[in-house]
Design a protein around this nucleic acid. Structure first.
Lengths: 147, 147
DNA sequence: TCATAGATGCGAATGGTTTGCATTTGCTAT
DNA sequence: ATAGCAAATGCAAACCATTCGCATCTATGA
């Protein structure tokens, strides 16, 4: 994404345009990976930015609040992960061997949700699905490598 | 569950039969609620048991390891929750207003999983589904109460 | 009954995340 | 362009669920 667009996005959200925000959104929007706050911090430090870890957390909070970024909590992972919000509904496939997280862009729950609303009386606003297993690479390798 | 059955269950799992284990399993198997380690600790203390919080954690670890209990991590909850493993596959409906967690015993993903395996090359071993929304009680009350 | 592996208590450590407070910076109205 | 103000940042300390080290105790099998 061009820098001007990032700045527009930040300001449209009612946030002040600061260099760290631009960098953080730039980082997240430029990768398919889910990154933790600490990972983002280290990548920015590596780029010679003198940012503070609490600024990273506070910035991410703001970006989640304004829906520019999404926070994801994978089961059994201590750290929260962040991804740029591309407004494409998706879920994750998580390899229990190499810890790779692969997004899936088909959702089998849309029809089901309506049925569930009727049966439960709940008004459903969101859902989360995660599949756990072993990716094709890890199935091949006999010696399971974990990172 | 009768106490003898609990003890059998503990010993069949290769664990030593100790009073705290019996109490913890008893507590969890006697409720539909999901309890945190701290909640379990407080309930036992309230029963005049002089248990230590780290013992609760260690006991729960063992019980999860031996599949007597399941650990559940709800999105955005800091504390892990524990439930007695009744060997009934289920998911959760979570009220974003009153925080109630309601199990759902129908799973819409079984057929889908197979398709996903074929498409992704993943070997899927487990999945997790959570629905978020507002329960019928909270939809009625205009003033949303959160706990 | 004894030996021993496993369980427990206690306190301290861990690690991700949050917060208080003083300082700095970006934005808006003038 | 500038002043004023709210928002953002840096830093250190706090938070809080969970884990760990180590000394002591206890259940279990021989």
């Amino acid at each position: 994404m061009r820098k001007e667009n990032l700045i527009d996005k930040i300001m449209d959200a009612g946030l002040k345009n600061t260099k760290y925000r631009v960098h953080i959104i730039d980082l997240l929007s430029g990768t398919e990976e889910l990154l933790s706050a600490q990972e983002i911090y280290h990548r920015l430090i590596h780029k010679k930015l003198r940012i503070n870890l609490s600024t990273v957390y506070r910035t991410l909070d703001k970006l989640v609040e304004t829906k520019i970024v999404s926070r994801v909590q994978i089961e059994n992972e201590k750290q929260a992960l962040y991804e740029y919000n591309r407004n494409i509904h998706h879920h994750f496939l998580i390899c229990q061997s190499c810890n790779r997280i692969i997004p899936i862009y088909h959702c089998p729950l849309h029809e089901y949700e309506q049925k569930l609303e009727e049966e439960s009386g709940f008004h459903i606003t969101a859902h989360r699905v995660e599949f756990f297993g072993y990716c094709s690479d890890c199935q091949k390798s006999v010696t399971k490598h974990s990172s």
